[in-house]
Design a protein around this nucleic acid. Structure first.
Length: 428
RNA sequence: GCGGUAUUGGUGAAGUGGUUAACACACCGGUUUGUGGCACCGGCACACGUGGGUUCGAUCCCCACAUACCGCCCCA
């Protein structure tokens, strides 16, 4: 019996991991320019944390939670998304306290888990990069958050993207609209698709983005949530739109856009990208929004929050397609040994190079000189140093530039005591 | 959770109910006693996902399971 990775998981091998580092580094750079700082919270939390935040009826909770009882009979769940844990940490560490500057801005990245059937760009363990900002209801914060998301994708050289926004209003808005939608659709129930008939009782908002053609026609006539916004929510949404325009960010309003988690309020947004990687179908690269009741829900003060999340696997599919320039970093030096007798001297030379901050490697499989050169080539080494018995005697080694084929002599001692001299000779 | 397709070496893959499982790439060695290319020569499958079954005999037929991919639910 051989082992295989658990269903829906993936090994990220070194070549791929380089791309992850690239994305994570750029995200960090962009976020820090907006004064966001990293937070790391546990990968698992008490099951209640997610049940409370995502909504008991949501699919994420009702059937996708990766949960178990630990040896102390605690009901634990692997986090299905990032916001809940961060909100829990925000409240538990009393980060809402007066000694903190508000808004309190954090970002995170790491694995998330959902027990679902794996599919394209969808796994049981997947990864998100996300941000959260607490403590301000300012529409400018919404604008900033959206602008930051756009900037991140732009830095990653994504094109063909467009921003879609909507407002879900506050709690009162949502209750009123929910009722109005049900009132509108119930008489039409017989005309709805089977799926949507079921949704009518389970999650009516979902009918808004049904894939069924006829459903869409019916929905087109349905009341829009934007007509139900409370005065505060309407003003907030108007200010967000003005703010976006002010920064020159184009947007589209889609009043049928809904999101999967129950905690969103007021502004929600998605950045859609069209890419051959997904058959030129438009897909969401970044989704996020406000969650003004969540901190209170977790036992904190009645403080607002806003954030977004990015699915890293999906993002990387997009980047692959755009041929993100990710050059493999070549090895600086490869050390070729001609016999066992020189191994100890060669090893010291190798270590000297590494101590000076340059990458270097050697053969450990007793290969012939020719084989060692081949390896140097495969590793894209810039220089090959050949160490043989003559070299050890004379104190000079040939250093060959693999790209040009030129070879020069350098003193072994220089590698040990005067690396600057080595570099100077290589420059010529 | 439901439905469909797939599963052969390090990789891409061909193939058959019955002595030695194509071909290519990669890799290793040699032709070249210490220099990367090319060429030529040679080597390279616990036997075809796992477990059962049918059969005189199965990698090829049947069943179950596992995993991957696609679609649905859902999500984004």
């Amino acid at each position: 019996m051989h082992y295989q990775k658990p269903k829906g998981t993936a090994d990220i091998l070194p070549a791929e991991a380089k791309k992850w580092q690239y994305v994570e580094n750029i995200a960090q750079e962009v976020f820090e320019t907006y004064n966001y700082h990293e937070i790391r919270t546990p990968i698992f939390e008490s099951y209640d944390v997610f049940e409370r935040s995502s909504g008991e009826s949501s699919d994420v909770v009702s059937k996708e939670m990766y949960d178990f009882n630990d040896k102390g009979e605690r009901h634990i769940a692997l986090r299905p998304e990032g916001t809940a844990g961060v909100v829990r940490a925000y409240v538990e560490n009393k980060l809402f306290g007066p000694e903190q500057v508000k808004p309190y801005k954090v970002y995170y990245h790491g694995p998330m888990f959902r027990y679902e059937r794996p599919q394209s760009g969808r796994q049981r363990q997947f990864h998100q990069i996300g941000v959260e900002a607490f403590g301000s209801t300012s529409p400018d914060l919404d604008v900033e958050t959206i602008a930051m998301a756009m900037q991140l994708l732009a830095r990653l050289k994504l094109t063909d993207m467009h921003l879609v926004i909507n407002s879900l209003g506050d709690a009162a808005t949502q209750a009123a609209y929910h009722q109005a939608l049900v009132d509108y659709l119930t008489p039409l129930q017989a005309e709805l698709s089977a799926d949507s008939q079921r949704r009518l009782t389970s999650n009516p908002l979902r009918i808004l983005d049904s894939k069924d053609q006829h459903d869409q026609e019916l929905v087109a006539q349905a009341p829009t949530i934007l007509d139900f916004l409370s005065e505060d929510s309407a003003q907030h949404f108007a200010a967000v739109k003005t703010g976006l325009t002010n920064l020159g960010i184009d947007y589209e309003i889609d009043h049928t856009m809904v999101r999967g988690l129950d905690y969103y309020t007021n502004t929600i947004f998605e950045i859609m990208v069209t890419s051959p990687a997904f058959n030129n179908q438009e897909m969401t690269a970044i989704g996020g929004g406000r969650y003004d009741g969540l901190v209170k829900e977790f036992g904190g003060p009645d403080e607002p929050g806003i954030g977004f999340g990015i699915g890293v696997e999906r993002l990387l599919l997009l980047l692959d397609d755009q041929d993100a320039a990710l050059q493999e970093k070549p090895l600086d030096f490869y050390l070729v040994k001609t016999s066992e007798a020189v191994e100890s001297s060669a090893f010291k030379l190798l270590q000297a190079i590494r101590r000076n901050g340059y990458s270097a490697d050697q053969d450990y499989l007793a290969r012939k000189v020719k084989g060692q050169f081949k390896n140097a080539d495969r590793l894209h080494a810039q220089y090959v140093i050949t160490v043989g018995e003559t070299e050890v005697e004379t104190g000079n080694v040939p250093v060959k530039n693999l790209a040009t084929g030129e070879q020069i002599e350098i003193e072994i001692a220089a590698f040990e005591n005067n690396f600057a001299d080595v570099l100077a000779k290589l420059q010529k």
